[in-house]
Design a binder for these strands. Structure first.
Lengths: 358, 358
DNA sequence: CTGAAAGCGCTAACAC
DNA sequence: GTGTTAGCGCTTTCAG
């Protein structure tokens, strides 16, 4: 019914079957006026009958518009980037754009030039750079962006002049976590950070630092330990932290995976959460509600980041296509929110009636 | 240096800059013989200087080979499909193929025709169908596959004549899990399955069933409860299972997320794992080693499934291109393996007198 | 309202 | 060795 057998039909075949020229067929498939109702109908019938589908390639070539976006991602085997990608696919789908996907591997992390080459050779209308900013792997940004004649939207990086950025507000997320812990009456709050060459890790740590400072609490470098995002670093980090900071009564952990490692350590050592120490994570992975105790964390809508990025880039593309002056590059920060669960709820004092029994 | 400013250079520009015809330039970029060393060198210099990159679009159009694969996925926000996609990206990258990505949404789950249309309109050389088989959402397979003049490789579905399939051997995985539990001396083993309209869920359940039968253990329908893959279904499922099957001493849970829900339930009720009951999951999500106790599970290399699928489809594509007779469709099963952790290890001597009751 | 000619950027098949 | 002609499948002038 729908898919015609071998060898896709061409506009020429449709035209000759309908006894018209190819331009007339072209007008029909592009919904242009200036075709008589009867002709249009007849051609439409033949199109349906033949299962004719115009070649996106040929169209892109002639019209210089591919309706295709390049997406550069990294770390797809982790849940965060995948969620973002999921947002990208759904927003692109609804906007009628296709996606050309590249995943950065360790080799390509530093040499981005071939990635751009490939994407450009496919005439993408824009690029969404969804790989995280690590170390100096974004040094090329200011060199490449201005030279490109298609827009790029960067995800999860520091705002900069002249480029488009969409990020979760990691700093705000950190503040939410820390403020909550203070409100719960914890006052010796340590931090297990992500790898500090990650921008996101630095933002979260900065929030930890600032909230403590604003509360006039002591901050020392031993109050923070650097993890590696993975659960395996949770236990060694908390162990070190406790050793360096014996008064510790709460810890803000930069992601839920590491928080899980911390909780496993606590179980092993017979430490009670949230009584011996409170804990707040970051990410709100689906599992964290089912940890024991359930983990208080920062929910970041990474899917939404992907959607916003697509919507933005399409706005830019289509406005540039209408010869409008390009919108000024801007940064968009998506606000995360605090999910309070048992791991940070002190029974005495804090936060009204929300208490658990144990 | 690499990226030349506005308006990508064309082969024509290179040709006139070098004072040769476009054909000669074409020969150089395609590494063809029949170009004098000096000419080649001169042209290469101009190419580098201009940052010229041939248009993949134009090439695909003329050569009828796009070096692009269509990838259809679903549920990217879950870790399994993302891992597979990651395998696909890396294998495609090394083979020099680009990827056109489509994610199935709820709406498109049933109506796949537009998906194919889009992919075909981009002249993809092959399609990897990585969306899971649910209910009758694959009814179209036999109708579409033969009509297509490009190969499709399906992931994670029942083997069939005449089509290419790459899957994890879910049945084997289930057998590994069950055999292990029996070896540990458990003999009242229940099952929490995935949604049974999923092929993978049915395979895992069949293994549970068969291993019990082969061991001459009783099987009753109340010994199995159907979950929904998510952690939230873990607790209600195990509660129901215990009620229906009071002698229960172990449970094979069809994925790690649900297993986590079960474990949380056990914590809440004061049940001891693995003493009150043993538990084995499926998937080996990165977190499961950090559950408490660490979860015995089935590791499935989903990344590898993606890689194998890409390698296969490229083999098919390139052989068909060389006019060889197409390889016979076949199914490839990737073997999973058992990861033994504490949740299923009966400690026959020690660990006495836990506060377990039921 | 419709068609003819030109060409997007490239390569296949032949000439020279 | 290199250039010429044609054309992939489509859209854009511009005639009529």
């Amino acid at each position: 019914m729908y898919l015609k057998s071998s060898g896709r039909a061409t506009i020429k075949e449709v035209a000759s079957a309908a006894g018209v020229s190819t331009q007339t067929v072209s007008r029909v498939i592009n919904d242009r006026p200036d075709v008589s109702p009867e002709t249009r109908k007849r051609i439409q019938q033949i199109i349906d009958q033949l299962g004719y589908q115009p070649s996106a390639l040929a169209r892109s070539l002639i019209s210089q518009r591919s309706y295709t976006l390049g997406v550069v991602t990294a770390g797809l085997k982790f849940i965060g980037p995948s969620r973002t990608l999921s947002g990208i696919t759904s927003a692109a789908e609804s906007a009628g754009y296709s996606l050309l996907l590249k995943e950065l591997s360790h080799n390509t992390l530093t040499n981005v030039s071939p990635i751009f080459q490939t994407l450009l050779s496919h005439h993408v209308d824009g690029i969404i750079w969804a790989a995280p900013e690590i170390g100096d792997n974004r040094n090329w940004v200011n060199q490449i962006s201005p030279d490109l004649d298609i827009p790029i939207v960067y995800l999860s990086m520091k705002s900069q002049e002249k480029i488009y950025v969409v990020s979760i507000d990691n700093y705000l997320g950190g503040r939410l976590a820390m403020t909550h812990l203070l409100e719960q009456g914890y006052c010796h709050i340590g931090h297990i950070s992500g790898p500090l060459d990650w921008w996101e890790a630095r933002e979260r740590k900065a929030a930890w630092n600032d909230v403590l400072r604003e509360a006039n609490l002591e901050i020392r470098s031993e109050y923070c330990v650097e993890g590696n995002w993975s659960s395996s670093s949770g236990a060694p980090s908390i162990e070190k932290l406790i050793a360096q900071y014996p008064e510790l009564d709460a810890v803000f952990v930069a992601n839920d995976q590491m928080a899980l490692g911390v909780m496993q350590y606590a179980c092993r050592k017979g430490l009670q959460i949230p009584d011996d120490f409170g804990i707040v994570g970051f990410d709100d992975i689906p599992e964290s509600a089912y940890f024991w105790p359930p983990l208080t964390t920062i929910n970041q809508d990474q899917q939404n980041v992907g959607e916003v990025a697509v919507d933005e880039i399409i706005k830019i593309i289509e406005s540039s296509w209408q010869e409008q002056r390009p919108a000024r590059p801007k940064s968009i920060l998506v606000a995360p929110n605090l999910i309070v669960r048992k791991s940070s709820l002190r029974d005495h004092g804090g936060k009204g009636g929300a208490a658990g029994e144990h």
